[in-house]
């Protein structure tokens, strides 16, 4: 790799992590009172907010209603000040639309949509600070928000990114590692069943290495699950104390 050494000979990455190590994750559920569900997550310096409204009646054209399941509507936007260079528009650009579609695909696989026919579930995610792995942070925040809204899901959806440098798979890429331009893989996993809700890879990677990278991403996603599970349990415990149960 020219210029920056992404993985030192001792096996440390630019920010001092080991290859399979995640950045620090902190999360909170129930950030806003007006929404049906909301959550905030920090993964290193990447910060994302997710808000869920619904299930509610279809807004706008009735023709969009699905007779057998709920419509999952996602919008991804990233604050104009979130990136290093200022963005001109928070949403509506090509990348945001694509992210919205990916999120929708991910959550259609996880939410038990058939329980709410002819209704709509809105998931809005907002990236406040982007430092790599925005898709993963958005999925993780949205999972917590959907759980906070009490919408039935098959399982948690836990996402993590992975890359490949010097024959080693790196989990949870930071912005510096993403910008270096190596292969990148985004994975959304349903950890209990091990099923994959979304898999996307860009740049080329030899087929023989794919399994290794996939394994690294899946392991990291399971670690994320452990952390998210802890956040949910903590939240429920606090809520039940407040309710006086």
């Amino acid at each position: 790799m020219a210029g920056l050494e992404l993985l030192s000979d001792q096996g440390y990455r630019v920010d001092g992590r080991r290859a399979g190590e995640l950045r620090k994750i902190q999360a909170r559920m129930g950030v806003f009172a007006q929404a049906d569900g909301s959550a905030y997550i920090e993964q290193g310096n990447t910060k994302a907010l997710a808000v869920v409204y619904g299930p509610h009646e279809i807004r706008g054209s009735r023709a969009r209603a699905l007779p057998d399941r709920a419509l999952v509507n996602c919008q991804y936007s990233s604050a104009t000040f979130s990136t290093g260079e200022r963005k001109r528009r928070p949403h509506g650009d090509r990348k945001s639309c694509e992210m919205g579609l990916q999120l929708r695909q991910t959550f259609e696989a996880a939410i038990l949509t058939q329980l709410h026919p002819r209704s709509q579930i809105d998931i809005y995610v907002q990236v406040l600070q982007a430092d790599g792995g925005t898709y993963a942070a958005c999925v993780n925040a949205a999972t917590l928000a959907v759980l906070d809204a009490g919408i039935p899901m098959r399982d948690f959806v836990c996402a993590c990114s992975a890359g490949f440098v010097d024959n080693t798979a790196l989990a949870d890429l930071s912005h510096v590692e993403e910008a270096a331009g190596g292969p990148q893989l985004a994975l959304a996993l349903l950890p209990a069943s091990g099923q994959i809700a979304l898999l996307e890879m860009d740049a080329r990677l030899h087929e023989d290495h794919l399994e290794q990278v996939l394994e690294a991403a899946a392991r990291a996603a399971r670690d994320v699950h452990t952390l998210l599970d802890r956040v949910v349990r903590q939240h429920v415990r606090e809520a039940s104390i407040l309710l006086g149960d």
């Binding site: 907010l49 808000v51 409204y53 919008q75 936007s77 104009t80 928070p90 509506g92 809005y124």
Partner: peptide, 16 residues
């Protein structure tokens, strides 16, 4: 100045 009324605040703000 730029003000972004995000959909987080209310679903009415979705899109444009």
């Amino acid at each position: 100045f730029f003000v972004d009324c995000s959909a987080n605040a209310t679903p009415e703000f979705e899109g444009r």
